[in-house]
C-alpha cells in the first residue's frame, strides 16, 4: 500500500490550517481510510487540542527522530475512530529539532501502512515549512478571502511549484462570509481563484461552531448539521477522487429569502 502524503499549508497564520487538517483527517477516517495526522508545528502545537488528544501524548515526533521510541509508540489513536492516528509535535522544543530528511523518512515509513498522511504545516516559509513539505506529494493551500492571506498563498504556491516532489496543489478558501460578498465587502471565491489561478478543492463558510468545536476538542465534521462540517466532508470526498458539487453556502434562511433568490436568479438569466 502506498498512501498519499498531503501537506496543508498557507504561509499566513490564523487562516485555519490546523482546523482544516483535523477536520479533513477525521472525515477521511470516517470514510474508512487509514489516516495519520502529523503536526509539524514544533513548539506551538495545537492539533492535539483540536482532536482532544492532549492528555494521551507521551512521545512526540522529536522523540521518534531522536530514537527515544519507535514510530508506532508515538502514534496516538483517536478517541472515536481507530482509523485515525496523530503524531504530535513536541511543545518544549523548536523547529530545528527535526530536519527535512528525517520527516521524509517518517513519511516513507507511514506510507506503507496508511492511506492518507496529512501534514499540518506551521505558518511561515522557514525551516518548519521546508520540513513539512519535504515528504509531501500533494498540497492543499488554505487561504481566506483577504489580500494579506492571498498574497502569502501566492508566495507558497510559488515555492510549491519549485518542489519537484509536490505533484499537485489545490486551493481551499476558508472563512467565507456570503453576506459580505453580497455587499461587495469581501472578495468572492471566484476572485480568489482567479487571482491565484489554482484548482479549487473546497469552500468553507465562516461558522461559529468551529470555535466551540475547537474548545471542546471535537472536529466539526462530526456535527451533521453544521455547514462548515458538510463542506469539510465534501473536501474529503474530493481528495478521494469523487466529483462532488460545491456546497451552496449562500443558503436562504427563510421562505421570503428563498422567493427572493428564486426571482433574482430568473432575472439574471
Amino acid at each position: 500500500m502506498t498512501g498519499s502524503v498531503i501537506v496543508i499549508t498557507s504561509g499566513k497564520g490564523g487562516v485555519g490550517k490546523t482546523t482544516t487538517s483535523a477536520n479533513i483527517g477525521t472525515a477521511l477516517a470516517k470514510g474508512g481510510n487509514k489516516v495519520v495526522l502529523i503536526d509539524t508545528d514544533i513548539g506551538l502545537r495545537n492539533l492535539d487540542l483540536l482532536l482532544g488528544l492532549e492528555n494521551r501524548i507521551v512521545y512526540t515526533i522529536v522523540d521518534v527522530v531522536e530514537e527515544r521510541c519507535k514510530l508506532k509508540q508515538a502514534l496516538v489513536k483517536d478517541k472515536k475512530n481507530p482509523n485515525l492516528c496523530l503524531l504530535a509535535a513536541a511543545q518544549t522544543r523548536d523547529k530545528s529539532a527535526v530536519n527535512s530528511e528525517q520527516l521524509k523518512e517518517i513519511c516513507e515509513t507511514l506510507k506503507e501502512e496508511f492511506d492518507y498522511i496529512l501534514i499540518d504545516c506551521p505558518a511561515g516559509i522557514e525551516q518548519g515549512f521546508q520540513n513539512a513539505v519535504a515528504g509531501a506529494n500533494e498540497a492543499i493551500v488554505v487561504t481566506t478571502p483577504e489580500m494579506s492571506a492571498i498574497r502569502d498563498a501566492d508566495r507558497i504556491i510559488g515555492l510549491l511549484e519549485a518542489k519537484e516532489e509536490v505533484k499537485k496543489y489545490r486551493l481551499l478558501v476558508n472563512r467565507v462570509r456570503p453576506n459580505l460578498i453580497k455587499t461587495n465587502d469581501m472578495m468572492s471565491v471566484e476572485d480568489v481563484v482567479e487571482i491565484l489561478s489554482a484548482e479549487l478543492i473546497g469552500v468553507i463558510p465562516e461558522d461559529t461552531g468551529v470555535i466551540t468545536s475547537t474548545n471542546k476538542g471535537e472536529p466539526i465534521v462530526n456535527d451533521e448539521n453544521s455547514l462548515a462540517g458538510q463542506a469539510y466532508n465534501n473536501v474529503a470526498k474530493r481528495i478521494q477522487g469523487e466529483d462532488v458539487p460545491f456546497l451552496d453556502i449562500d443558503k436562504p434562511k427563510n421562505l421570503v429569502e428563498k422567493i427572493k433568490k428564486f426571482f433574482s436568479k430568473k432575472v439574471k438569466a
Binding site: N55, R56, V58, C69, K72, Q73
Partner: peptide, 9 residues
C-alpha cells in the same frame, strides 16, 4: 520502557 510495544495510559 524498553520492550514495551505500547504504553497504556
Amino acid at each position: 520502557f524498553d520492550g514495551l510495544e505500547r504504553q497504556t495510559i
